[in-house]
Every structure is written in structure tokens, then in C-alpha cells.
Design a protein around this nucleic acid. Structure first.
Lengths: 141, 141
DNA sequence: ACAATATAGTTAGTATCATAACCAATAACG
DNA sequence: CGTTATTGGTTATGATACTAACTATATTGT
């Protein structure tokens, strides 16, 4: 995360980067501002989710599961791919989500390595309850 | 962090938010894109820092210490404020930075609660070595 | 002076993330 | 076939972040 309040000045950027003619001071400054804004927004979202016992990642998993209603089961590997986050994170995230009743593991697949899962009613209900506030925070930030 | 690859579509946003006339679909979509871009950029920066044994926060602390050369000592509380991050994080960050020799604690102040510190030569050297690459990543992202 | 309060910093406990190493089951192929 | 490689998922370990509670020193206020 990036929480520096006073961003580096143009002078500082061009001062340190003047050796490299590659660096575009304008773009760099914009990127810094974006990092700061995004970090604050993420922090705000995480606080919102925490109020309802979710992490941002758990929320995004619910979104993914809810979104593709065509397929009624999903695999950890798929989530991993749609959410580019490391496998262990998905694994433990799913475990806690199961413990809290937001997802359910289904009957075994033919490939016995796979553990197909789906969103639970409680999970979907929570997601739908949080979405409006979510979008509201996003558009305000 | 926010690593969802396929962002919610306009339809999804307006669909879930249509009850609230407050929500601006355009702004919300922009915010989502920003979150994703920033998260990727932060991840990239953290990898860069990790190659040199620093975290993003440690790097930012070095920036702050280096930037205000007027004052030659700083306090944890000041850093805390310029980097709006919680006190414990600053505390442990500083401790590891001392262990690795990037900062030094100075002689005691008159107020014996305070532990004034400053950037070390090694710290400043590392910072200056990393800055060009840092700005380069920022402007490219 | 002395009790109450505020401030600087640390410690404790918990959650999230990452990488690396690890099972177990399937697939590939000589 | 049977050895090797690949794939789905978990465990181990370590870093970073948070809040809450703590210690110790200074300040305030009666």
C-alpha cells in the first residue's frame, strides 16, 4: 500500500530522474497521485467490508461466484485465475468463507483432486446487500 | 488490494445500483479501473523493493527522512503523520530498518519518551540507488 | 504538590498476502 | 505398463497491516 501524504514534487522527480531521459515527470506524478487515491479508497472499502465480516478478497470471490451463474460450480483454480491472486490465498480464503457459511463444497467431481464449490444462499444474500454501498463508495472516491 | 481481472460491467453496476439515483456508473467504472491499475502497480513496486531488501513502507520512510534534510532528526510520530499509517506499523518498520542499518537512533532528547532518529549513510545510499528505477516503474505503469 | 490526562512508543493478538515446499491424483509418453 | 511430468489443492513460514491495550514520561489543573 502507498500512504505517503505529501507526494514527491516535480522538482524531486525530475531531479532524481534527470539522468534517465526516459522518465516522464508528468506521468510519474500522475501515477503517484493514483497510487495514493487508490490506497485510500482500498482502505475505505476494506473498512466497509470489515463491518460485515468480509475482506475485500472474500467479497470479490463472492462477486465471481455470483456473476457466472451459468456454471453452478467453480474451482479454486478458476477463482485464482480470475482474481490473479496466489493459490494459497485463494485456498485459505475459501476455507474461512466455508467456515462462515458463504460458500459450500459440492459433491465430488470425477477428478478427485478437484473440490467444486458454489456460493451459498447466505453468501449471495450478503453480496447483494453489500453491493449498493460498494458502488456508492467507489463512485464517491 | 484489488486484483479482480474482469471488472464489473456497466450493466452490472447500473443493475445493482439503479435503486440509488446517487450512483454514477461512469465514475464507478473509472474507480474500479483505477483500483485495478494501482494494485498491479503497487505489486510491481513491492517486487522491485523486495529485490533490494526493502518494503514499500520502508522505502517511503527513507524518502521522508531524506526529503526533510532541514531537520536532521525525526520522530516516529512525525513519520506516522506524514505517512498516514498506524503507530505500531511505524514502530516495527523502524525497528527492522535499524536492524538492517538504514536508520540510526541518535542521542536522547530532553523529552525522554522521544527516540529521535535519522537516515544512515547506507540508507541514503540505497534510497538514491533505488529512486531512478522507482520513477521509471511509476511512469511506465 | 498531586491526581487526571495526554503523548511517545511498544507489545499482543489477529488478518491478509506472498513464496516455497509439499501431497495426491491425473495425464503423457516412451 | 510404468516412470515422469503436470495439475489441484494444502501446509509452512515470513512479511506487513490493523486495533486494542500497555508502559513510561510529561503536562495540566485544581
Amino acid at each position: 500500500m502507498f500512504f505517503l501524504k505529501d507526494l514527491p514534487t516535480r522538482e524531486m522527480i525530475s531531479g532524481f530522474a534527470h539522468s534517465l531521459d526516459v522518465v516522464d515527470v508528468q506521468k510519474t506524478g500522475d501515477a503517484l497521485q493514483m497510487l495514493r487515491r487508490a490506497s485510500l479508497l482500498i482502505r475505505q472499502l476494506e473498512r466497509y467490508f470489515a463491518l460485515h465480516g468480509l475482506s475485500q478478497t472474500q467479497f470479490l470471490v463472492l462477486m465471481i461466484l455470483h456473476r457466472d451463474q451459468s456454471k453452478h460450480t467453480h474451482l479454486a483454480a478458476e477463482i485464482c485465475e480470475k482474481l490473479d491472486v496466489s493459490k494459497p490465498v485463494v485456498s485459505t480464503t475459501l476455507k474461512t468463507m466455508q467456515r462462515r457459511g458463504f460458500i459450500v463444497y459440492c459433491e465430488k467431481a470425477e477428478d478427485s483432486r478437484m473440490k467444486p464449490l458454489r456460493i451459498s444462499d447466505a453468501g449471495r444474500e450478503l453480496l447483494l446487500r453489500l453491493l449498493p454501498g460498494y458502488f456508492e463508495i467507489l463512485q464517491a472516491g
